[in-house]
């Protein structure tokens, strides 16, 4: 039941994952936190929407101005800004562009915060209250919203984060709907 194809059993995800979590491989701190365990991610292209499990807890943090503003405060308090600056990165990757190594949906960002990632992202599950991790995820998701980028004044971005519209994540992983993520197609011109 812990096969890599479990993503296809989205409807049963809760049950399946509960079973899997008895094994050491997926025995992550998040399990202690609440009703639901690890979220399935759609990291590859071409998956149909139905193949992506959706975390019902994410719903609270869409269209939620308080969430992104609290997230912004926490982003500084938990030293996220130490690595990711104000979204532009440094020790850690930039968060304000449209490149997502581990998925850019709200629940995927939350999952990254919970589990950590192998190239240096610490795991925060069990260390930071889960609600705060969702607020942080909402702020991070907001950084690349066109509305947030448009509000940048000067050389410090992400200071006026727009709430994350529900439709921003209304996709299965290949590309977001128009106008919900900055189309940061880069063309670099040479020196003049």
């Amino acid at each position: 039941m812990c096969s890599p194809y479990r993503i296809e059993l989205a409807g049963l995800a809760l049950l399946v994952l509960a079973g899997c979590n008895k094994g050491p491989a997926t025995d992550l701190p998040v399990r202690q936190l609440g009703s639901r365990a690890v979220i399935d991610s759609a990291l590859t292209a071409g998956l149909s929407r139905s193949a992506v499990s959706e975390d019902p807890r994410a719903a609270l943090y869409y269209d939620n101005a308080a969430a992104v503003n609290t997230g912004r405060r926490l982003f500084g308090q938990y030293n996220c800004s130490g690595c990711h600056s104000n979204g532009g990165g440094g020790m850690g990757p930039s968060l304000m562009d449209d490149e997502w190594i581990y998925g850019g949906r709200l629940e995927q960002i939350h999952q990254t915060l919970v589990e950590g990632r192998p190239n240096g992202m610490p795991s925060w599950g069990g260390k930071v209250p889960d609600e705060q991790l969702w607020q942080l995820a909402a702020y991070v998701r907001s950084m690349s919203l066109p509305a947030t980028l448009a509000a940048q004044n000067g050389s410090t971005p992400s200071q006026a984060p727009a709430p994350v519209p529900r439709e921003a994540d209304d996709h299965a992983g290949w590309s977001p709907p128009p106008n919900t993520t900055n189309d940061y197609t880069t063309i670099t011109t040479g020196p003049q």
Partner: peptide, 28 residues
């Protein structure tokens, strides 16, 4: 690091403020 790292030149505070003065390096 604005060239070799995953850093966005739109954030002048990135890489401990270094990006602000090196944002044109990717042109070169």
């Amino acid at each position: 690091v604005v060239v070799s790292g995953p850093v966005d030149p739109r954030d002048g505070s990135a890489a401990l403020g270094m990006v602000n003065v090196m944002s044109d390096l990717p042109k070169y």
